[in-house]
Design a protein around this nucleic acid. Structure first.
Lengths: 170, 170
DNA sequence: GGATTCATATGATCTAGATCATAAAGGATC
DNA sequence: GATCCTTTATGATCTAGATCATATGAATCC
């Protein structure tokens, strides 16, 4: 799996869910204006497209954002395991429950009106793993506003610039 | 259950999930500035706080927004049913999967930058069930902007004002 | 029936972020 | 090493939405 590879596209028939062995996959959707919106980032050990088990089609695009490999788990296997193995079933359900909480937290984050505060919250929540541009697409800001807000947070002493495109909490 | 009643508050220890028999309950969280953010609206027949089964504390406030009644389902009962009844387990898991999809769709909706387009999408998605003010808290707009955008959509002929605070798609 | 409260509306103003433009640094490719 | 592309970064300008103010209608409550 190379950077830029498409694992599946929105509206394609679902075949199963995936586990990231190495590298990184982002789930994204194209907005009305064609701009990309990042919905999820799955890194090593993480699963993605869990919901596909209950859906006929995928609801977003899965694009490789960092070279690596993934393994696919067939829908039928998941369904079978859920019926025969209560522990698996509970684990899978718990996985979805965690996602619901994460999305709620994300919606709350998006409700923060100030760019600086929103970015600070995003960094604290561990969103800033890749580029500033990618962060911007996750939190509904233009990348310019993102750079400026990061600059502002550094000026405030609330964050520290540790290099080109690298910032940490102070 | 009367309007304004609190069923539970954020950070309270979870006891179980709820089914709305009649009336309406909204799940909301207080933003940083104290402004309310509506995360969910449960109406007759709907469940809410499903995620509490997997969480030690509630993550938002549940407030009655329309008088009626609810029944509580104890966490232990749900856990037991999930272990003994595969069909129940699958149904419950599906419920969470649907929520994940809904939240993703909501995040996509929030990424629409134009107030008019965002409101139109929200109305099409069936968000506009209560007041304009309540709609505003769900889609990260001030209520003034909401009224103006609704007015604009009527001027465009894309919506129709059918009464005070009542609008429908044309 | 008067007082209170909340939702609906709209007008005026202000500002934060979008947008457009530019430029340089770094990485990949040939 | 030259070229291309992406990311980083910042400046200038513009505008959509926030904010503040005001008024009215409808519901609730004594």
């Amino acid at each position: 799996m190379q950077k830029g590879d498409v694992l599946f596209r929105q509206n394609q028939t679902t075949s199963g869910l995936y586990r990231v062995v190495s590298g990184c996959v982002t789930l994204q959707r194209a907005g009305l204006g064609g701009e990309t919106l990042t919905l999820h980032r799955a890194v090593s050990g993480g699963l993605f497209a869990e919901v596909s088990v209950f859906s006929a089609t995928y609801h977003c695009d899965a694009i490789c954002s960092e070279a690596g490999s993934v393994t696919k788990i067939a829908k039928a296997d998941v369904v079978a395991a859920m019926q025969s193995n209560p522990a698996f079933s509970e684990g899978f359900t718990r996985l979805l429950a965690v996602q619901v909480q994460q999305y709620r937290a994300h919606i709350e984050l998006l409700a923060i009106s100030s760019a600086k505060e929103r970015i600070l919250a995003a960094v604290q929540a561990g969103y800033f793993n890749a580029t500033v541009t990618e962060l911007a697409t996750r939190i509904n800001l233009s990348h310019e506003a993102c750079y400026r807000a990061l600059r502002g947070l550094c000026d405030d002493g609330r964050m520290i610039r540790v290099g080109r495109g690298k910032y940490t909490l102070s």
